[in-house]
């Protein structure tokens, strides 16, 4: 499967495969480990898992998810200005994967290139840990609620589409009923108006077909403007959750490990001095300790830079929150339009 990726900003279309997205995601994560890099959708359908999703639906879902991924990246205040993103969106040569890897190798990770990377500590508020912990809880609750909103919106969009099918089938059955030209038995034709009524049923299927179209349009609107937008924001919230985990398991963990290693070395050094070992081995140990001290210092700087980025990414989530009103607006508009249009057809049917 190949995708045509068109950027409005660069006014260019490029062709990309899933594996190109995969490499792009990998290098983006290497370069911006301290930021909200959204996840990619799975490459394949999980085999052996009971699922009601067909192959076609899976491919369409994956296309939508790749679209959300690249749009979140292209709208991010820091990713969007990076060479990697520009390369992915504009490079027209034969091997975009090598080009991406080379670009990443050449620039290094964000800590190496950010102008204030080593002074991040000076910019952090004193209560950064408390602020982070509060924001993280708030965002977690928002994430949980948005997942429920998405599930409900998805069901409503599905029901609109099912409504479309039912209305169409209802109209078709009326038409079948009306098209029955078999003569009525005399006991029926003398007492009822069934003959005339039957005639008029045939034409009703047209109105039901219009109703069905309106319901299908409503379903599509809800899927594109409501469910898809909710998924977009959910992808961002998930990437924030992943970032928090990376921050704790990554930088903090590495820092702890380095400190532990340092204390072991110090102990070794002390016992070596006490036991007055060979000067060469003591010297070697000393130089390793100096190296380790410098590694710890870098890690401390990285830790502050990671917190600095985390603080910015938290602000980014809060900046995105007003998207809620965009989504609700789209939902209300879709409902108003759907009910109005369908109301008009039902009114025509009433006589």
């Amino acid at each position: 499967v190949e995708y045509q990726v068109t950027s409005q900003r660069y006014k260019i279309s490029v062709y990309r495969r899933y594996s190109d997205f995969d490499v792009f995601h990998e290098v983006l994560l290497q370069r911006f480990a301290y930021r909200v890099v959204p996840a990619l959708p799975p490459k394949r359908m999980l085999k052996g898992v009971l699922t009601s999703v067909s192959e076609r639906e899976f491919i369409e879902g994956r296309r939508r998810a790749l679209g959300r991924f690249i749009n979140l990246v292209a709208c991010h205040p820091f990713f969007s200005e990076d060479e990697l993103v520009k390369t992915f969106l504009t490079f027209n040569g034969s091997d975009v994967q090598t080009k991406l890897r080379d670009t990443c190798k050449k620039t290094g990770d964000e800590f190496m290139t950010h102008r204030i990377a080593t002074q991040a500590k000076e910019y952090l508020p004193a209560d950064i840990q408390a602020q982070f912990s509060t924001s993280r809880d708030v965002i977690r609750n928002i994430h949980n609620s948005f997942q429920k909103l998405r599930d409900r919106a998805e069901k409503m969009a599905d029901r609109s589409k099912e409504n479309a099918t039912d209305l169409l089938m209802f109209g078709r059955e009326l038409s079948t009923l009306g098209s029955d030209a078999s003569p009525l038995p005399s006991l029926a034709s003398s007492q009822s108006t069934w003959g005339t009524l039957r005639q008029s049923l045939k034409s009703l299927s047209v109105e039901f077909s219009v109703l069905s179209d309106k319901a299908a349009q409503q379903g599509r609107r809800e899927e594109d403007d409501v469910v898809e937008k909710l998924n977009f924001f959910l992808d961002l919230l998930q990437s924030y959750r992943d970032l928090c985990e990376r921050h704790e398991k990554g930088v903090l963990h590495e820092h702890q490990k380095a400190l532990h290693k340092y204390s072991v070395m110090k102990r070794q050094m002390m016992s070596a001095t006490v036991q007055s070992k060979e000067p060469a081995s003591v010297e070697q140990l000393e130089s390793r300790i100096v190296q380790q001290e410098s590694a710890i210092q870098t890690m401390e700087l990285r830790n502050y830079f990671s917190l600095f980025c985390l603080h910015q990414e938290t602000q980014l989530i809060f900046t995105y929150l007003p998207i809620t009103s965009h989504i609700l607006g789209a939902f209300v508009n879709s409902q108003v339009q759907g009910h109005r249009e369908m109301g008009e057809v039902w009114n025509e049917l009433q006589p």
């Binding site: 499967v1 190949e2 995708y3 045509q4 990726v5 068109t6 950027s7 409005q8 900003r9 660069y10 062709y15 491919i59 369409e60 296309r63 790749l66 679209g67 690249i70 749009n71 292209a74 709208c75 991010h76 205040p77 969007s80 969106l89 204030i116 910019y123 952090l124 600095f308 603080h311 910015q312 602000q315 980014l316 900046t319 995105y320 007003p322 998207i323 965009h326």
Partner: peptide, 23 residues
């Protein structure tokens, strides 16, 4: 340097990328 002073509309208007399947 720490503050992101951008609105949602400014973020969303940075770019719009279409991803279409090639049949």
């Amino acid at each position: 340097a720490l503050t992101i002073s951008q609105t949602l509309d400014q973020l969303l208007s940075r770019d719009t990328v279409q991803v279409e399947l090639i049949p």
